[in-house]
Amino acid sequence: MAFINIQNLTYQYPTAKAPVLQNINLQINEGEFVAVIGANGAGKSTLCYALAGFVPHFFKGEFSGVVEVNGIQSSQAALAEWVLNVGLAFQNPFNQISGAKYTVFEEIAFGLENIGVEREQMKSRIEAAMKLTGIAELADRSPYSLSGGQQQRVALTSILVMQPKLLVLDEPTSQMDPIGTREIFAVIRDLSNSGMTVVMAEHKMEWIANFADRVIALKDGQILLEGKPNEVLTSDVLAENGFGISRYTSTAREAQKRNLWKKDSLPVTLEEAVEGFRRK
């Protein structure tokens, strides 16, 4: 039995005229790192909310089908219990602080206080998590005076520190600098290697290709494609549907037409591109 099991999920926001997710079926194993791609408005955030239980519990609306994590259905569980296993960092970093804390360190403690972690353990967990995401030096800053990229790291750390079984991240690196983005992807990869399941909505194809186990391509609330990064990200279907792809893939496709790319499959990572373009 898969760790995450979504069956025939269809969902419509209360104020909307049509469903934003339509008949989604998806199985994800424990410890998998899955990236969700798609244009703005495709339904990535809504899928994240559905996994995190906020759809339907918080947003209400018309929900049908099944979202099951670790054998429990979201519709059968209370949101307050659901969030103990499923952590969510949502899209907008600016409003993701509790508003009741005075320093970044204490902000990150908020969740641990709520689940009753004992003080000494709390401190060591926070320190470890901040080191992981590279914000140790922000510990004493006010959570309000940070730049977008810094706030995003704080939001991510606040969830990581709670060690959820399933980590749901909605565009967690959108405000980050390029190498910072790569480092965060690497951290998430490590977490997933150590058994955490990760679902992440993202646009950054190069790092998805390097770090994710699987890619789900959403279009208009439906799954268009699903599979390994090098299958999905090189598919013609993706290009035809207006998805962004990495320069490695698009340039190799162009090179293929001019007979400058000889391999059958197209590259998605730097390594694969080097491999194919290197002079024999």
């Binding site: 600098d177 390029p178 190498i179 910072g180 790569r182 190069e206 990495s246 320069r247 490695y248 340039t251 730097l270 591109a273 080097v274 373009f277 290197r278 002079r279």
Partner: peptide
């Protein structure tokens, strides 16, 4: 030094010489 990578094709070009 300022946490920026060169563009994808710049890195690729360099690697393939």
């Amino acid at each position: 030094q300022t946490y920026v990578d060169p563009p994808q094709l710049t890195r690729l070009g360099k690697k393939i010489g």
